[in-house]
């Protein structure tokens, strides 16, 4: 299995190649008030309106520094196309199945919920992202993104 790799904060994450439709640079984004927190906004992908999801938020990582311009990893879910916001795009890798291990139990609950496993690459660990979980609408009890926006 081949994986597209992306940097998100200090993590290297991998998404199955066939899931990734394209990777595009930072896009102007329209903020959506009252949307779940993980929704960073809407982008215009050649006339199609695509929801941009904050992977950092989903993984429980700190917000990106001000002025950073995340890239859009456009992926296909069952019934729609979404963009996952990542810091940087890396190369495509094909790790050997022997290097696979489950996500360590010491990882944060968010990471364990969003990742299916790890591959031990040379010099780094690749976390395999469970795109279905990332794309699922998070239970967000007080749910209003606008609270954060104000």
């Amino acid at each position: 299995m081949q994986y597209c790799t992306f940097k998100v904060d200090h993590l290297l994450i991998g998404i199955e190649v066939w899931r990734v439709q394209e990777v595009i640079r930072n896009q102007p984004m329209t903020f959506v008030p009252l949307a779940p927190r993980e929704v960073r906004g809407l982008i215009n992908l050649r006339g199609q309106i695509v929801t941009a999801i904050d992977v950092r938020h989903r993984l429980g990582l700190p917000c990106p520094p001000d002025g950073s311009a995340p890239m859009n990893a456009v992926i296909r879910l069952d019934d729609e196309v979404v963009s996952l916001l990542v810091d940087e795009a890396g190369e495509v890798v094909e790790p050997s199945p022997e290097s696979y291990e489950p996500v360590p139990s010491t990882a944060s609950p968010q990471i364990r919920a969003m990742c299916t496993g790890t591959f031990k690459l040379e010099g780094s660990l690749l976390l395999v992202l469970d795109t279905d979980s990332v794309g699922r609408i998070a239970a967000d009890p007080d749910g209003l993104a606008a609270r954060r926006a104000s």
Binding site: P28, M29, T30, V32, P33, L34, A35, P36, E38, V39, G41, L42, I43, N44, G47, I49, V50, T51, I53, D79, E80, V82, I137
Partner: peptide, 21 residues
């Protein structure tokens, strides 16, 4: 998309003349 659809205030989205949503 399904994330935004659940907000009852919005009927949809559109792309404006300047390409923004």
């Amino acid at each position: 998309g399904r994330h935004v659809k659940q907000v009852p205030l919005f009927a949809g989205a559109t792309i404006l003349g300047d390409g923004s949503v």
